[in-house]
């Protein structure tokens, strides 16, 4: 690094850096970087806005009551809706939550309350982190081999299991973080009153961390609501209403995938509409979480 101090001209402003070629270059490169980074940020923001606005414009005209009450019409005939997809998504997310929340939450409890910094806990923590990096289609394969193939049928159950596995690390990680944040004094105060460890955790520690835990759960649910790949070979999709989890089940992302590549414009329109519904859902969830945790107030994420 070469920041040099030059001889000043006699009448120069002592608070201004001398106008040498070197300093000019420094100034220019500074401005250039500011400009480039601004450009990069603008690009990212612009892409998102463009995407959102495009989907809004393409999908909004087709948002109507039918969308939420009717099932798709065969072969691109006009009308119909995505009601079965929405219902299927709700069932699948519910199923996934049943599976993923307890596993994730108790893993978080273990890591925070019992494991601490020990070697086993470190291993488990690492495993959980690794779980987040596995592409979701792999969990679909897992459920495919484990449930679909033996049953010889696609099923909502398999889809729910695959989605549940995706939820586990998200819930575990956020739970662990917020549980750790509960001050130790609270635990001590409870124990000093003669409460058992389990009572302390259940009645004092977890309620203290309740908001953070719920945030993690909602985050995980929003995430799996948009997942498609693992459902391809598990829930598979279904053009009719189906609430039987042992049978193929539809989901909103699946239907969007299906319709996006359709030759029928009517179905493409509904794909946009469905995308809009999905995006709005996720946006609301993201905003709600940020607002609930006060994320807009300070410079945190």
């Amino acid at each position: 690094m070469s920041i040099t101090v030059e001889q000043q001209q006699p009448t120069a402003n002592p608070f201004q850096a001398p106008r040498t070629a070197h300093n000019a270059r420094r100034r220019i490169s500074n401005i250039a970087i500011v400009a480039l980074s601004l450009l990069a940020t603008a690009f990212a923001v612009a892409v998102l806005l463009f995407l959102l606005l495009y989907v809004l414009r393409a999908g909004l005209p087709y948002i109507n009551l039918d969308l939420f009450t009717k099932i798709p019409t065969p072969n691109g005939e006009p009308g119909g809706g995505l009601a079965n997809s929405i219902q299927g998504s709700l069932i699948l997310v519910g199923l996934a939550s049943l599976f993923g929340i307890p596993l994730g939450l108790f893993t978080g409890i273990y890591l925070s309350e019992f494991g601490g910094r020990g070697p086993i806990a470190t291993g488990v923590r690492f495993l959980v982190d690794v779980l987040t990096g596995i592409p979701t289609i792999i969990f679909g394969l897992f459920a495919w081999i484990f449930i679909v193939v033996p049953q010889q049928s696609f099923s909502g159950l398999a889809g729910g299991v695959a989605l549940g596995i995706i939820m586990i690390p998200i819930v575990a990680r956020t739970s662990e973080v917020v549980l750790r944040l509960v001050p130790n004094e609270l635990r001590e105060a409870s124990l000093a009153l003669g409460a058992t460890e389990s009572r302390t955790i259940l009645r004092v520690v977890i309620p203290s961390a309740r908001n953070g835990i719920i945030t993690g759960i909602v985050l995980a649910m929003a995430r799996v609501a948009g997942e498609t790949a693992p459902l391809l070979m598990t829930a598979f999709g279904n053009p009719f209403f189906n609430s039987d989890i042992t049978q193929p089940m539809d989901a909103l992302p699946l239907r969007i995938f299906n319709f996006a590549e359709s030759p029928y414009q009517a179905q493409i329109n509904q794909a946009y509409a469905g995308s809009l519904v999905l995006i709005v859902l996720i946006l609301i969830t993201s905003f709600a979480i940020r607002w609930a945790t006060g994320g807009f107030k300070h410079g945190g994420r």
Binding site: L48, L51, Y54, V55, A222, R223, A225, G226, E227, T228, A229, P253, I256, F257, A260, A271, Y272, S275, L278, I279, I282, L283, S286
Partner: peptide, 10 residues
């Protein structure tokens, strides 16, 4: 947070 299927659609 945008689901990948929507990126695919787009």
């Amino acid at each position: 947070a945008v689901p990948s299927v929507i990126y695919g659609l787009f």
